[in-house]
Write a protein that binds this DNA or RNA. Structure first.
Lengths: 341, 341
DNA sequence: TGTTGCGCCCAAAGCGCTTTGGATGCCGTC
DNA sequence: GACGGCATCCAAAGCGCTTTGGGCGCAACA
């Protein structure tokens, strides 16, 4: 059933039917009712592409995901992020289109998706420290928003980020306040901007307390459970082991806890952990009370807000760029305590 | 840059340019070369919606995800599944469009996405035992493929599934072979078809060995780490605790292990675990050697194969329905051993 | 020389919608 | 009674592409 057929059934012109359906004022209310009834009865739905062609809008938003064999990008937070974003898209009538591409095709994919007009805007995930996507998208003149920031990109662009430096600075300071001096950092991959900022925050807190950083305590890799376990095992077996761990996510924190308990140590007494908690739905940090002391910021909420900001930029394309910096919340769990000895 | 402008620049008709770009034979090879060069130079890319309108194909595939507050659906396996599917889509020039909808709107969303012609086919996730989506999509006459099956739906439809019953039957049998008699089942939510089949396999193995099932040992809920922990804690504190656990995923298995170790017991000696391992990228079951003894089947590979099957169905819409049942692979880890005592 | 056949190219229709620019009829007003 | 204004509707153009149904020129054939 298309518009023409529906119009014929109603003995109206396509114009009138279209206007009735789209809420334009120049159509009699009784006529509008007739049209709406008929549309519902025949399950009429305006053709997506025809409408897009006519209006020039795609009513969809693109996410380009590099389908690397290294799973970092399609990562654990992705599902929750798009769940949040998707909610907002749906509310505004947008669809989410995801292009999975080989890493080496990534930039070309952004080009492609923009030039063929498949989307009205693009959401950029997991920026690196010097991310080339930002310059490309600016040049393509398509609205976009970055979830995160790119430290070495000086141009103007819209982003939403958590204050990762501040979060890790506070976490480190908290541990120092508890008397810890040897604090390990189990970080994500440091070509990613957020990881770099987290390390910067960690280092700043150490410096402020005149604690010399020890490079053996600073680890970086993809955030998996075994990574946390292997790393913590190594470090705990050092002659001078850390008394506290800072983990970039709940996932490696689970591995760290396991290494601690394997050695007959007690988390929160012998060894402390603070982790960053993205509130991943199936890896909750405890059911009622939090297990891990954590810096917490909901990735799902970030997805929602990113979607709102991007949709707003699409609606008003020449508005000034928008930035939003969220502070992570400190939550006291059972994984921290005074430094032993 | 659109087709008309490109054609003008080349002093050719739109027809010829279109044909040159789309590889039709009736155009001189030197002309084709000119066209391709110009297209590359000007970054010409055929407009997605216009092409769709003209061809009647959307070149995209829909996934409808209920954005429930219960995170079951947007779950941990989702990211890996779509990573696999996305690879194949990309290779065939398809995009993936994801509609996030409120649970109560789910069926309507399938209708909508089909009727407005936004997608050429639909991939159905996480079917329940009696899933209404299958009848709806059949009636809408849009190609679709179910990842999983719906036990109580008798009509003909295409699906790809892991032999969940068989996997859990074998796992249970393996534990029984090791002398275990009290085996707990830490299952997913049993309105979902895969969970029901897993329980059926578990029960069959028990029955075949004349072991009476004990309903206290059969648990079902969303598969999270705390769920595994809480459940195992309860069961291990019973006067007559299980000596082995069967877990529906690595995630609750992590919680079960934690409960075991908290009690000073040793996994694989005092208590055994077999879990289903979907090979989630950031929750690998060990790095080199597997930690958990497991029934293994890659969710990412399933995503790839589902995409292939669906694309094939789209290409040949009146082919007969296709079904594919995968056997999970048994992998020996360090989490199983002879029943104690 | 006239006729085919073929290689190459083009004009125009059509996909299903939105939107511009009227047309029509009816009312009240001077 | 002519006229402007308003409410309601319509015809047709246009979005950018694909595809149908030729047209034109040249070589080969009779």
């Amino acid at each position: 059933m298309n518009l023409r057929q529906l119009a014929e059934k109603l003995n109206l012109s396509q114009t009138t039917v279209s206007r009735a359906l789209n809420g334009y004022p120049e159509v009699n209310e009784t006529t509008r009712k007739r049209v709406l009834d008929a549309a519902a009865r025949y399950h009429y739905r305006p053709n997506y592409r025809a409408r897009g062609l006519a209006t020039g809008r795609a009513m969809s938003i693109g996410h380009v995901i590099p389908a690397s064999n290294q799973p970092q990008m399609v990562n654990m937070i992705f599902a929750d992020f798009i769940a949040g974003a998707g909610e907002v898209y749906a509310r505004h009538g947008y669809d989410m289109v995801i292009s999975m591409v080989r890493d080496e095709d990534e930039l070309r994919a952004y080009r492609g998706v923009a030039e063929k007009g498949a989307v009205d805007g693009i959401l950029v995930h997991s920026p690196t420290c010097d991310d080339p996507r930002i310059a490309l998208l600016s040049q393509l003149e398509i609205p976009f928003l970055v979830h995160g920031r790119s430290s070495r990109v000086r141009s103007d662009y819209s982003w939403l980020d958590v204050n990762n430096a501040r979060a890790f600075e506070r976490a480190t300071r908290h541990l120092i306040g508890l008397g810890h001096r040897r604090i390990a950092l189990v970080n994500g991959q440091e070509q990613l901007d957020f990881a770099l900022r987290r390390r910067a925050g960690y280092l700043k807190a150490l410096r402020d307390s005149a604690i010399a950083p020890d490079s053996i305590l600073m680890r970086t890799d993809e955030m998996s459970e075994p990574y946390g376990h292997v790393t913590a095992s190594e470090l705990l077996d050092l002659p001078d082991p850390p008394t506290a761990f800072l983990a970039s996510s709940v996932v490696p924190a689970l591995g760290i806890r396991r290494a601690i308990e394997e050695r007959g140590l007690v988390m929160g007494r012998d060894v402390s952990i603070i982790c960053f908690d993205d509130r991943i739905s199936y890896l909750p940090n405890g059911l009622e009370a939090p297990i891990f002391t954590a810096m917490r910021s909901s990735i799902r909420a970030a997805g929602r807000r990113c979607a709102e900001l991007l949709i707003d930029r699409i609606a008003r394309p020449d508005s000034t760029t928008v930035t939003e910096l969220w502070e992570a919340e400190f939550v006291q769990g059972q994984s921290t305590g005074p430094a032993p000895g």
